[in-house]
């Protein structure tokens, strides 16, 4: 038997409200990650509810969007957000412990980022 999970599409502007709501319900933040697409990224925010149900919120951002950090809601988001920022070039503002792209101290800039398509 496989575990069922939900993936819910949301708009990036709602992310803080949704996470705040999750936190109030006593959900825990399971993981966050990004998938690169040309000139942007898809972000996944997964939480686990009190009954250990797995819910993922999926949102798409373009390169010029500045996202608010959720590290004040979920403290363990700092590492995920720093990682997204450093490796995927997602603009995240006000992370409570911001490493300023020095989390992994690599020589390559945003290695996971996909180059914008030609003609864009």
């Amino acid at each position: 038997m496989r575990e069922n999970y939900k993936i819910i599409d949301i708009s990036y502007s709602d992310i803080t409200d949704i996470m705040l709501n999750c936190q109030k319900q006593g959900d825990r933040l399971v993981q966050m990650h990004a998938v690169s697409i040309p000139s942007g990224a898809i972000l996944y925010y997964s939480v686990s509810t009190g009954d250990n149900e797995f819910v993922t919120y999926k949102t798409q951002v373009s390169d010029d969007v500045v996202l608010p950090s959720i590290s004040s809601i979920y403290p363990n988001a700092i590492l995920y957000e720093n990682e997204m920022k450093e490796l995927f070039g997602v603009n995240i503002d006000c992370i409570s412990l911001d490493y300023n792209n020095r989390l992994y101290r690599i020589n390559v800039e945003t290695p996971f980022k996909k180059p914008a398509k030609e003609g864009e």
Binding site: L87, L97, R102, L103, Y104, R105, I106, F112
Partner: peptide
């Protein structure tokens, strides 16, 4: 306490 990581970073996801 402020952690800094990356000493074993290989980036094998790439």
């Amino acid at each position: 306490a402020i952690p800094s990581i990356g000493y074993v970073h290989r980036r094998l996801e790439k």
